[in-house]
Write a protein that binds this DNA or RNA. Sequence first.
DNA 1: TATTCGATTAGCCATAAGGCTAAGTATCAC
DNA 2: GTGATACTTAGCCTTATGGCTAATCGAATA
Lengths: 114, 114
Amino acid sequence: MANRIEQLDGVFQALADPTRRAVVGRLGKGPASISDLAQPFDMALPSFMKHIGMLESSGLIRTQKTGRVRMCSIEKEGLRLVETWLSAQRALWEARTDRLEQFVTKSQRKGSSS
Amino acid sequence: MANRIEQLDGVFQALADPTRRAVVGRLGKGPASISDLAQPFDMALPSFMKHIGMLESSGLIRTQKTGRVRMCSIEKEGLRLVETWLSAQRALWEARTDRLEQFVTKSQRKGSSS
DNA sequence: TATTCGATTAGCCATAAGGCTAAGTATCAC
DNA sequence: GTGATACTTAGCCTTATGGCTAATCGAATA
């Protein structure tokens, strides 16, 4: 599973657009069809479809076509990747909070101000 | 604070690149100069500087020049934005886990894998 | 069966991203 | 004050992103 890292690229990239984050937010409340999802956005359908495509290929959502309707739902594992990465970062910087704290405390004794 | 949303664009965009995530990871362990940070990457300095620029303008890192050296450090508030957004999403989908669970279970019978 | 409706494909366009080289600026070390 | 060091600026290139229109395809429906 070395491609976890590459998948993170896609997930973050997908989340870097407000339309796509809104879609993720909407799908967080429950599945919806493409046109349901597209309706709030002032955008041509093909443009919107590109967003859906990026969300799906990044693994943030899942879609399935039934008849002529394509239903979309959230894929929890997508956001979980982000959570995992984020936890790792937090772990890093919290591991050195003590040292930093000491440094800052020392510095403030000499320089004061805020 | 309506621009929180726009700032999220930048933060996610910044994190969508492995070089930049690596820099964030490195800075999580402590501050470093530009050339220290650049050294592990096989990339011309100006290219690397663009990454630093994006990280800084997104609010993920802070930099400060002293003499001819520019020191970079992590800006915790940047990643905190992501954490906040992520919590909001989790809150959404956990509020309806039961219904989702049923839908997902059905859908997964047909597709998905890995 | 003819229409309409939901989605898709194909192509175009402008801008941004991510890389490069070459040349410039400002310290710092001699 | 010469030269090395650490960035910075300017400009170029290629590919990706995010938008559009027009035309197509396959269900559903009248």
